[in-house]
Design a binder for these strands. Structure first.
Lengths: 157, 157
DNA sequence: GGTAGTAATATCGTAATGCGATATATTGGA
DNA sequence: TCCAATATATCGCATTACGATATTACTACC
């Protein structure tokens, strides 16, 4: 049943990760330059760039960041201590906590985003190109057994 | 001088991150299921999938993972303790340390990679599509505003 | 209205991650 | 030989992340 995984397969997976990682580390670096931890930048971005129909609750943000809710709570704590965001109880449903940007947070976010926007369009194209190259190296991979399809969802949210 | 960053810009950046994050977290999850931390899986993968012309030294692996060398050293330490890799001094240049997979490490890596290979081909295509959509979200707009238009179109050649 | 169950957030303990600064060993020249 | 560059390792510290558990608020159902 087990199809042998070749060195080419491993190289493709590794190369894909390498490309993505280096694309993202530009942004990590940009964040650190303005004194933000990478994850902190991502939280600020997630709030500011939330889809129009969503509220910035802890749970929603956790889902957007691909994190557990408790990890997100602590991330918010650190940003609140630094004065970049603040919490506001949702009056509609008092279980919900809305996480809102403060001026200082928005400022920092903007400084990182400004550097990223052009960057993303130039390097992003490279990344997409590299990804299609890597992904297309074996388009005709035979379908594996049915069992493999029973995968659990990543998030409990 | 500063061009205003719009909500659409933030949404695009956030959406891009969301897509990438969820694509990657599948792999984090697959790694954790076999008892590997995400980064540990990536180190094993980096070793096994290293380009043919490279040696698995600490520095090379750090570069492939996009990490500082000292972070990589500690990651290797943890994997060595668990018996998944071992170190070997390079006899050519005794400053170099070669990081080699042990059987157990290779086994675990294979289990994760096996789940990822098909996954990457299906979800990867989705990701690429989403990325081009996000990256090109303004490419379709009329190029009236010259300021914004200074961005290069995606070159797929 | 009361109660059980569900949902959202928070807290605690612990391990992994990651960096800057610094230390040590090795190599390859001047 | 001596010195600068290179490679790895160590130390201290903050951040990240998770599982388990607690607390508060809402919702059904009786």
């Amino acid at each position: 049943m087990a199809i042998r995984i070749t060195t080419s397969d491993y190289r493709a997976l590794a190369e894909l990760r390498y490309r993505i990682r280096h694309f993202l580390s530009e942004s990590d670096y940009a964040a650190r330059r303005v004194g933000l931890e990478p994850q902190q930048y991502l939280l600020l971005l997630a709030i500011r760039g939330l889809p129009a129909d969503a509220d910035p609750t802890v749970r929603v943000l956790a889902e957007r960041l691909g994190l557990r809710h408790n990890t997100t709570v602590e991330l918010i704590n650190r940003l609140e201590v630094r004065g970049y965001v603040h919490r506001k109880r949702d009056v509609e449903d008092r279980r919900h906590v809305l996480v809102l940007l403060r001026q200082s947070g928005e400022k920092l976010l903007e400084r990182v985003a400004r550097q990223r926007i052009t960057e993303v369009h130039t390097r992003g194209a490279e990344l997409v190109q590299a990804m299609t190259a890597v992904l297309g190296y074996r388009e005709m991979l035979p379908k594996t057994s049915k069992k493999r399809g029973t995968r659990q969802p990543v998030n409990t949210s």
